[in-house]
Write a protein that binds this DNA or RNA. Structure first.
Length: 262
DNA sequence: TGTGATGTTGAATG
DNA sequence: GCATTCAACATCAC
């Protein structure tokens, strides 16, 4: 479940489990999600290292090592972390695990293998190469307006583009469009600066709420469009129309016909 | 049995 | 070089 708020939760979990820990050894069951080296080379690079901190940018979580390098943890669609002590508590989908010197084990699980794990000598160079945009919580209005103005793509397509803003995914973008009564397939170029400013404000508001209330923000289901009632044909709880499904930017998209006119 | 899934990417095209 | 679109990735669960 990884969009920005979920990765924020992963960071909190990771920090509590791993900061200050030394890696006694890595256990690797399947190295297909390790994208820039083989499993044995990855394990060798990490053995003996200490974890000193972590940095989250959008959906990317960089685990910092005591040699100045980083391990990038990107959770894909189904990535997860699992801290345990006994081998029998290993998750069914664990792909590799950090074995710390104090006996704790931090497993990285991923059923669908869309996660991306990279050993990075230069985090900033990687971010630049990827053209990864600013984290949604660090977004500045002027930057956002300049990046968005005149784009020919859809509103949803632009908000999913991690080089404009890092952190939004399919669910939160639908949520944002619903809240602002904007159609996800609206052309960005057709939106006014005033509308783009509303989008900006809503991005910051939603991500701030979710992270400040982490990990309990899901206890506020009424805050989230997708959480409680997202099914085609249902009525908008605010009485403005019927839920419809369409493909936008290649993703299944839910919106309320009438409430979100094109 | 078929279908779709909270994401990214490389290739193709404009 | 940039912007945009889209199939492909691999597996599981309903």
């Amino acid at each position: 479940m990884p969009e920005l708020p979920e990765v924020h939760n992963f960071k909190q979990y990771f920090d509590a489990a791993a900061i200050g820990q030394q890696i006694a050894r890595m256990e690797i069951h399947d190295d297909r999600i390790i994208r820039n080296m083989s499993g044995p080379v990855f394990a060798d690079a990490l053995k003996g290292r200490k974890i000193t901190g972590s940095i989250r940018r959008g959906k990317y979580l960089f685990a910092q090592l005591d040699n100045g390098h980083d391990v990038l943890l990107h959770f894909g669609m189904t990535g997860d972390l699992n801290l345990y002590q006994e081998p029998e508590d290993r998750g069914r989908f664990e792909k590799f695990a950090f074995h710390f010197t104090d006996g704790n084990i931090l497993g990285f699980e991923d059923s669908r293998l869309f996660a991306r794990i990279l050993y990075l000598e230069d985090r900033e160079a990687y971010i630049a190469e990827k053209k990864l945009g600013p984290d949604a919580l660090d977004l500045e209005l002027e930057y956002f307006l300049e990046k968005m103005r005149g784009r020919k793509t859809t509103l949803k397509g632009a908000l999913l583009n991690q080089s404009i803003v890092a952190g939004l995914g399919n669910l939160y973008v639908d949520d944002l469009c619903y809240k602002l009564r904007l159609h996800p397939a609206a052309r960005v170029a057709d939106l006014t600066d005033e509308q783009l400013t509303q989008v900006y404000d809503k991005i910051v508001e939603m991500m701030t709420f979710a992270t400040e209330n982490a990990p309990y923000y899901r206890d506020y289901p009424d805050e989230w469009f997708w959480h409680t009632w997202r099914k085609e044909g249902e009525q908008d709880p605010e009485g403005e129309g019927e839920v419809k499904i369409m493909k936008v930017a290649g993703r299944t998209t839910y919106y309320v016909e009438g409430r979100q006119p094109l």
